[in-house]
């Protein structure tokens, strides 16, 4: 991980990210907007599957998903810039940050969860439900996991800057 981080640090991107004092805050703003788009779109779909806002047909709410993916892509790009451009310690310090590692694992799990939604027939099941119908239990489990995982991603994302507090709390 550290070797990979040092290799990433050799790119000009580090120099670029630290050459302009407005670039880092700008990327943070994009990162927050991307987060809101992801949580807004996927969160609405998840909440409806869990039984909130009945009257909205679940299958049609899936139209929000591309915007959620757009938010994710914006955050993957700005996130990669944060890693490579990390001013203190470079990419190696970022990739070995425990809070970041947990965040990454939660993102992978959220991805697997999304794949489960589309490739185990749950999404197809949603198409058969009316606007006020209750979703089946397996769909609710996937939706609840999605909300929990993305909230975890936000929490551990915020903890990256407070990694020492996290390690102290965990007794590491």
């Amino acid at each position: 991980m550290e070797t990979f981080g040092n290799w990433l640090g050799t790119f000009e991107v580090w120099r670029l990210m630290n050459a302009f004092d407005w670039l880092w805050p700008l990327c943070e703003m994009i990162h927050f907007v991307g987060m809101a788009l992801l949580i807004g779109s996927i969160g609405i779909l998840d909440c409806r599957i869990l039984g909130l806002a009945k009257g909205l047909p679940i299958a049609r709410l899936e139209a929000l998903v591309p915007l959620g993916i757009a938010g994710f892509v914006a955050n993957a790009v700005t996130g990669a810039l944060f890693i490579i451009g990390n001013p203190t310690g470079g990419p190696a310090a970022y990739l070995t940050n425990f809070a970041f590692q947990i965040k990454l694992i939660l993102m992978v799990l959220a991805g697997i969860n999304a794949i489960a939604f589309y490739f185990t027939g749950i999404s197809q099941q949603m198409a058969t439900l009316g606007p006020v119908d209750e979703a089946p239990r397996n769909a609710k489990i996937v939706a609840a996991a999605s909300i929990a995982l993305w909230i975890g991603v936000i929490i551990f994302g915020r903890l990256i800057m407070y990694n020492d507090t996290l390690l102290w709390f965990l007794g590491l």
Binding site: M35, A36, G40, G43, I44, I154, I155
Partner: peptide
């Protein structure tokens, strides 16, 4: 740190749902 995280979560909910 938790209060800061909650502030990001609340932002994502109110801004995200508003935006949709």
């Amino acid at each position: 740190t938790l209060v800061l995280s909650l502030h990001a979560i609340g932002l994502a909910i109110v801004v995200g749902v508003s935006a949709m």
